[in-house]
Amino acid sequence: MKSNSNDRPPILQDLGNGSWHYNYNITEVEIQPEPMAEQEGEQAPAARKAYDYDTVEVWGRPDYDKCVKAVLRSRRDETEEFSLINKYNAFVLGLSTDETDKTEYEAYLSEVIAVKAMVRADLQKVGIEVTGSKL
């Protein structure tokens, strides 16, 4: 889910109900105020900083596997993932001649690698060591 905040969000945010938000892709942005009819002697409001970011919900104490899974599932569900795998396998076995079956799956694998690297780096920033991952 895309989010925006005036304050920099924490990478991991305890919601107090057994779930956490994992906030990622946090980017500082400058918000320009809406143009207003300027009156004599008034200055236009200054631009302000805000933060755009993505967020997913994780149940239980967040760890590497939970965060990776939550991010990947927010982008694609299991059915879509299995479809990519099946199309790729059909291409590899010669049952499909559609080159996009191969390239879409390769792009997905690159996305998975990037998500894993991002989660690993984010968790290290908050002092969580990543060891013994199932993913």
Results as ranks from 00 to 15, higher is better:
G16F: 05
G94W: 00
E30W: 11
L135Q: 07
S19W: 03
E30Q: 13
S133A: 13
A107K: 08
Y51C: 02
E81K: 14
Y51W: 14
T79A: 14
I113P: 09
E129N: 09
G127Q: 07
V58N: 06
V119W: 01
K125Q: 12
L72V: 10
F91Q: 01
P10E: 04
M36I: 10
E104Y: 03
V115I: 14
K49W: 05
V130D: 03
R120S: 12
D63G: 06
N17W: 11
A70I: 02
D65M: 05
N6S: 13
E42V: 01
A44R: 13
M36E: 09
E111K: 03
K69H: 06
A70R: 01
D101A: 03
V112K: 11
G60L: 02
R75M: 10
N6R: 10
Y88Q: 07
E78Q: 08
E57S: 15
L123K: 01
D54A: 11
E104G: 05
E106H: 06
I85M: 15
E129H: 11
D54G: 08
E99V: 09
L93T: 09
E81N: 12
L84S: 04
A44F: 07
D63C: 14
V29T: 10
D52T: 09
S96A: 03
T131Y: 10
I11Y: 01
T27F: 12
M118C: 07
Y108F: 11
Y51T: 06
N86S: 14
D54R: 15
R48L: 07
D98N: 13
D101R: 01
E38I: 09
L12C: 04
E38V: 14
E38G: 13
A37D: 09
T100V: 05
P45F: 07
W20M: 11
F82I: 08
V115C: 06
S110M: 08
E106Q: 14
T103V: 04
T79R: 15
Y24N: 04
Q39R: 15
P9N: 06
K87V: 05
A47G: 07
E30K: 14
E34M: 08
M1P: 05
K102P: 02
P45N: 04
N86Q: 10
R73D: 12
K66L: 01
S74H: 14
V119C: 02
V68N: 00
L84Y: 01
G16C: 09
N6Y: 10
A107N: 13
N86C: 10
E42W: 07
V130H: 06
E40D: 12
A46I: 10
K134C: 07
T97P: 03
D77H: 15
T100E: 06
C67T: 00
D54P: 09
V56D: 01
K116D: 00
S96E: 03
W20Q: 05
F82W: 07
A90V: 00
D14N: 11
S74G: 11
Q43H: 11
P33M: 10
W20F: 15
R75I: 02
K134N: 08
S5E: 07
N25C: 12
I113V: 10
E57D: 12
A117S: 15
I11H: 01
K134H: 13
E57P: 05
L135T: 07
E28L: 09
D14R: 02
P45Y: 04
P45Q: 05
K102G: 07
N6G: 13
E111Q: 08
